[in-house]
Design a protein around this nucleic acid. Structure first.
Lengths: 205, 205
DNA sequence: GTCTATATGCAGATAGAC
DNA sequence: GTCTATCTGCATATAGAC
């Protein structure tokens, strides 16, 4: 038996609908009526369960955030080599975002609207790149990778994972004749291509 | 004497204010009153000059888009080597986005809201990566760069330019103690770091 | 051209019947 | 808990005076 996150069936339907609509359209782009329609319930019930639009949005945002946290956190703090970590982060990250296409823009928007809150959420969960930064510095000292600022490397990796999904509607049109399946395959191939690209650039041969 | 784009002074103040507010807050996040306040004119005047919010937004979007088109287009269709092009695109692109921090998210949002329109705008202006794709294929044949799909390479380059600015508010906090000047310097350094990173990865030595 | 006042419609939120 | 009906406020847009 599946453990539902919310106690009532209606509550579950609301939160599920809210995720779909908020993540696709953002806070100001979403109408409570849209969510009610999606959940096939009455608009008043949204307020009965979540009081206000803001509170419902908060629930959705935390969900979207924590959906991606655990695995990344696990990778960051593992004892694997820097190269393995790069491979794992790219694979996990691209995979998760492929299954949740609207998350990148949703989170980017929230990053710009309320960066402090997101930062505090990250701290609460213990997501920090400190260990990864140190590991990169050590690998540079050991001569395994070229001299690069750890921040550059990490942000490069993130960029390569996130942007192709955030910009998908245009990129798919420009490069793949708007063929959905082709782009999906393209993203799939990036799980391997991105780490290759990064490692190829930094590895000392 | 400077040639203003719009005939009246009021019209110019409106469009300038609208750029600032729309680009920062998006279509649904912007109130006509916000624009009126920013322009220090009456709300009714917005409608007198631009009829509707949508039409005003359209004017702003086209402006934001064409602001970045000419130089990129020039680079794409020039006769420079692939390595020079990579260097120029990164430098121009990052520079332009640094001066217009909110453009990336603004355009990304519009890409997801109305991708077809943006694509058609690009075609009208003749922005297409066809020539760059061909050039990459030739360089691969000549053995100057490794075997990589041109789409991967181009999208990688774009990712590395755009994402660090779209995600700035969070990245600045996480990696630079929210120090604005440090992040500005970081972005500045990427004008050289990004092409190095890319070329390092694809160049056959 | 620019303003004040106002019409119109809609979205978030609540009251109250069932 | 769930619904219908309604309140309230606000945003776009217009009318009309100056």
């Amino acid at each position: 038996m599946i453990q539902e996150k919310y106690s009532s069936d209606t509550e579950n339907r609301i939160i599920k609908a809210a995720r779909k609509v908020f993540i696709k359209n953002g806070l100001s782009g979403t109408r409570m009526q849209n969510i009610a329609n999606e959940a096939k319930i009455n608009k008043a019930l949204l307020h009965y369960y979540f009081r206000s639009k803001e509170k419902l949005f908060d629930a959705v945002f935390k969900y979207a955030f924590f959906k991606f946290v655990p695995k990344i956190e696990e990778i960051l703090n593992s004892e694997k080599s820097i190269f393995e970590k790069i491979e794992l982060i790219a694979e996990q990250y691209i995979g998760a975002l492929m299954r949740n296409q609207f998350i990148p823009l949703f989170v980017l928007h929230e990053i710009n609207r309320n960066p402090k809150r997101l930062y505090e959420l990250m701290q609460q969960v213990g997501i920090t790149p400190v260990k990864l930064v140190e590991q990169i510095q050590q690998e540079i000292k050991k001569g395994n990778i070229i001299n690069i600022r750890p921040e550059q490397l990490i942000i490069n990796l993130l960029s390569l994972c996130v942007f192709p999904i955030a910009g998908r509607p245009l990129l798919q049109r420009v490069f793949f004749h708007n063929d959905k399946r082709q782009y999906q395959q393209f993203l799939e191939s990036r799980k391997k291509e991105v780490p290759q690209f990064v490692i190829n650039s930094i590895k000392v041969k």
